[in-house]
Design a binder for these strands. Structure first.
Lengths: 246, 246
DNA sequence: CGGTCATTTGACAAATTTCAAGGGGGGTGG
DNA sequence: CCACCCCCCTTGAAATTTGTCAAATGACCG
């Protein structure tokens, strides 16, 4: 059994249940681990890939956090998401064969590289892996749907609250505290992602702080009152509901 | 060779190149056509599926147009997209096995139903179909990314302009006019989708009308000056660009 | 210790929403 | 065939939110 130089391979990876190997029989996990080409350590602000490059591999995050963004034709940029350990990056590029977004490390981190040709070959061999890839893609679509809902017709305070709760939940899923964590991204990144200005983000965070719902110091977040934070997210949207009919 | 009762089967469908059969060898297309269970005609405001239902089939749109929306826990709704012929609906639900959104017809239309068990079986048999499904999923992800970019930090006028251009492009891809088409959805649907109020949508459309860029009468849209419309979409977003660094 | 960058804060401006009222089309029933 | 009604859409004025501009504070790094 081969092991990669940096870190442990899939059978021993503590993230296996959050990543591609989830639910696969042991022998398939070993095969999967064998095609993982290398684990690249990246420093903060180092790019994992650039929009437009040929997409030859997918990347599973092993540690650290990343920011994905799209560069518009006019040069402006839009952050489309933040990524954490166990997540697969690059799958938005499967369709075009080239990366449709860029990915950059927010802090020191490492990834597992999955060469697409070898991954495809393995999928043809193991239907279980194939459907697992489908599931991951489906999960990605579901996550994007959540982002669309997050961005649609919500106040700055709601967006910020949802954002904090989203991070809290994801840290929880990784086995970290849901109540207290560090923001790996700058205020500006949050603002860009949420479609707000940096000043509005700062003011809304200050407001949540003042109300005692969260305690924010620099990039450290402590959620003091999760229930109240959740309550901010779902006020009466009666005027939105009219979209239904049915 | 079997034919479905309503409409033509895949080998003869004029949408084949926009749909799942694209690029597949003829014999595989025939097999695919054989698993298409039925083509359901739907009237306006009739639901194709409801959020929470078990997802047993995917649906390819044959004619008409649809609106997909998510119902939030508080009862409010968020439209996540509009769908046109050749597009596959339900793939956002593959991960959970249940529909994560509801789909309703905006006008009279019909769909091809693809039962998932039979589709999966066929995928196992034909790797080409399998990768085609992957491509469609990738396309869906790319489309969702476009929506996220559309919703992020853009003015009402930009959103409306992008929306009109998006529709124009899609009608063009279907072989219809890019310059003149009918909106199948209400103003309220547009507003909900774009994260605006119905009044803002109405005012922005009136403004584009007044400037002579488009001519809008009820639900009929004629794009008089596509270049100027495109110019509205990409003003200088200098303040957004700072998200990059790298 | 100085410089740079991220963040906060304040005052003002602009965009969008809210509230309110008034047309206009299409469909139904007389 | 016409009148009526309902719903969709438009328009106006005021209120609110958010963005813009400007300046100050604070953290981090060499």
């Amino acid at each position: 059994m081969q092991f990669n130089k940096l870190g442990t391979s899939c059978p021993d990876c503590r993230l296996a249940d959050l990543c591609l190997p989830y639910g696969l029989p042991a022998n398939e996990v070993v095969q999967l681990a064998n095609i993982v080409r290398k684990k690249r350590p990246l420093k903060a602000d180092e790019h994992l890939y650039l929009q437009g490059e040929e997409c030859q591999s997918l990347y599973a995050i092993k540690s650290g956090s990343f920011r994905s963004y799209i560069t518009n034709p006019d040069g402006s940029e839009q952050i489309i998401g933040f990524n954490f350990p166990g997540e697969l990056m690059g799958i938005d590029s499967l369709y075009y064969g080239r990366f449709t977004s860029s990915a950059v490390a927010l802090e020191t981190g490492s990834v597992c590289e999955l060469p697409l040709p070898r991954l495809n070959a393995l999928c043809a061999e193991f239907p279980g892996l194939q459907s697992q890839v489908l599931r991951v893609l489906g999960k990605e679509i579901a996550a994007d749907r959540d982002k669309i809902v997050l961005l649609g017709h919500r106040s700055a305070q709601e967006k910020i609250s949802i954002f904090l709760l989203m991070l809290s939940k994801r840290y929880g899923a990784l086995g970290f505290s849901e109540r207290e964590f560090n923001l790996p991204m700058r205020r500006q990144d949050i603002a860009n992602f949420l479609g707000l200005t940096i000043e509005t983000v700062s003011r809304q965070l200050a407001e949540l702080n003042k109300q005692g719902i969260v305690r924010i110091k620099h990039r450290n977040v402590e959620i003091k009152d999760p229930l109240q934070l959740k309550a901010l997210v779902e006020p009466c949207h009666s005027h939105c509901s009219s979209a239904s009919l049915g």
